[in-house]
Design a protein around this nucleic acid. Structure first.
Lengths: 367, 367
DNA sequence: GTGAAAGCGCTAACAT
DNA sequence: ATGTTAGCGCTTTCAC
């Protein structure tokens, strides 16, 4: 039998083939444990069966977890995953993408996307498939093959409302410098909710010093701690802090502990991501969940879909509804007492039996 | 000029070349921004410039951090890093390695190595370069190109002695099922130190249920929590727990909190790894540090060294001395009172100003 | 010291 | 429906 027949089988072009032939090929492949050479394929097609995962840093457990799930999903379809830690630097990100393109990698998942994809638009025009994570549906400029994102705006609204419902009024949003869209959206959700309630907005942004130290910074826990320390020495002190992500929230918890401020009795803290450790820390963290596994799977599905550019040229946005997971880092404040006289405030901690309450869920697709 | 000349330059065979020629080539390369095609190179040489990082799961922040540092170091030498999460399964590990070999990958870093490398020995015989992390220097069977490991035995000794010095007697070692060498060594260090002090040994091992759930388990925090919960209901209760790694220690902290047991007043906890979060949790964790960045760098260096098999055929072991980082999860117990009458015990917590004390440091090489 | 030429293992256009 | 064949971009003998 000829090589082209085998090649046809390998590449799913077996429709017009005699079933018997196809079976013979399949059997031979199985018997010989034949597996095509990636290198030769790539040399010929110019396309590596490799997905590049471009994220700030897998030292952040959220991205680490996503990486694991992505690898699992990718492997099922014969794809490898290569790792690119960009520390959210725009130029570094572009340099990475250029290198990946050079290496014949045509599929990348851009985690924590910058507000626009302009810096890699030329590669996209040449045929790079990018799946953007955390890009706004209405982002201008070059459109990715697919954009998958938790509704960050809504997540922040959920979190802010939760705090408002608990009686908090002096709520601060704490984040390292927001370079990525997701963060900006979260801030927007916080601001609009606060303003809508007739309250003053207070957003504290810090440079993550850690960005220079090669990823061991755990993506902002230290930054969060430093900023929270200063924040908590303000008078009147905020009664609640909404953190840009879980790591930042853990840093806040640490700062509160150092300052002798009890959480949630004297301070409520909400995170974002729901990393595995969120339920393990003291106190267990109330947070907005981003379902990493689901997102990883969707990313691979979309990549595969986009593979056939002819059949699916359109750009798709998948918006995942976030869920607020209520644990024990948030509690009711009985008397909000606008002026902020501290003695007038009383906090009643939630019973620690609360295991986590989900608010909202589901996925909606915007074609 | 001819292609072979360029090829010679590219592959560092420029010694016998006229310097002027060499310069001409270099300039042309720079001007054209020429970069050789990985695929073609690989097809020709059978060797991909790619390092596979084989670890239990990058959802564990320790491996995530190591992955980031590895990627940085690898990139400096023109290598990519592909990710393989094996969940510590021997068969899965072998299957991965077989696939990697198929794909022309000849360099792998085996994190958290199993006690022996037998399951991949055939590939090593065929030319696979493996750098093993956490393998015992005296491990039998096939020898890796290099083995890099923190002295796990010594680390556990340091940790155990620390607890002993603080007056603890009922010290339990808590770990998920120890399939990897590093864990076994830690247990050995704990046991011998305890026995040497004339004390009874108590090792609690749990199946990490999380191993099935695809890496979102955060590598044992949940398992640690569950096991610690049961452990802490024993009478007499242990006064100190030595955890198999930091994640497990964080789980222990959670269990103690749930049981209303205060750390370090009523229970001391020691971890292993020193992940970035160890200093951020409540209370900050006393732990044995494994320097991820240094280890990642050494791994790449050794890989490069081993590349030239002719010049460096020998197998090398690098043993890194662990440091005990004392934070606030351990405290003195004044009266050890052998019988274990609870009312006889008094714990004096360390002042929370303790920032971390290093005991021991340095690297020793055993050729 | 430099150049010419033979493939590495595939895919796809073309021939049958 | 199946077979033949020309490269993809490099490395590496082997002549010169």
């Amino acid at each position: 039998m000829s090589v082209s027949t085998v090649s046809n089988v390998l590449n799913g072009r077996s429709r017009r083939m005699r079933p018997a032939t196809r079976r013979r090929v399949d059997r031979a492949i199985a018997r010989l444990r034949y597996r095509p050479s990636r290198a030769a394929r790539q040399l010929r097609t110019g396309h590596a069966r490799t997905i590049a995962l471009v994220v700030p840093s897998v030292a952040n457990p959220y991205w680490g977890t996503l990486a694991v799930h992505l690898e699992t999903a990718a492997m099922r379809h014969g794809y490898q995953v290569v790792l690119c830690n960009t520390e959210r630097d725009r130029r570094r990100e572009r340099a990475y993408v250029a290198g990946l393109w050079q290496d014949g990698i045509r599929d990348i998942i851009l985690g924590s996307a910058l507000p626009s994809l302009e810096h890699v638009a030329d590669f996209m025009a040449r045929g790079l498939t990018v799946i953007a994570l955390g890009l706004r549906p209405d982002a201008g400029g070059a459109a990715p093959a697919a954009s998958i994102t938790v509704d960050n705006y809504r997540g922040a609204v959920l979190a802010t409302r939760h705090l408002l419902d608990l009686g908090h009024r002096r709520i601060v949003f704490l984040s390292d410098l927001p370079r990525v869209t997701s963060r900006l959206e979260r801030i927007r959700g916080y601001r609009e909710t606060m303003t809508g309630a007739g309250l003053a907005t207070d957003t504290v942004l810090v440079w993550a010093r850690g960005s220079a130290n090669g990823g061991s910074d755990a993506g902002g826990a230290d930054a969060g701690r430093g900023a929270a320390r200063r924040l908590l020495s303000r008078r009147p002190r905020p009664t609640a802090i909404l953190a840009g992500n879980d790591l930042c929230a853990l840093g806040t918890l640490a700062a509160a502990r150092e300052a002798g401020i009890s959480v949630p009795a004297e301070l409520s803290v909400v995170g974002f991501d729901d990393i595995a450790l969120a339920r393990v820390v003291t106190p267990p963290l109330t947070t907005v969940r981003q379902p990493a596994q689901a997102i990883a799977r969707m990313a691979v599905e979309q990549l595969l879909r986009a593979q056939d550019r002819a059949a699916h040229p359109e750009s798709v946005t998948l918006v995942v509804r976030p869920r607020l997971i209520v644990r024990s880092s948030t509690a009711r404040i009985v008397d909000s007492n606008e002026g902020g006289v501290r003695s007038g405030l009383t906090h009643v901690p939630r019973p620690s039996t609360a295991r986590g309450v989900a608010v909202g869920s589901g996925v909606s697709a915007i074609p």
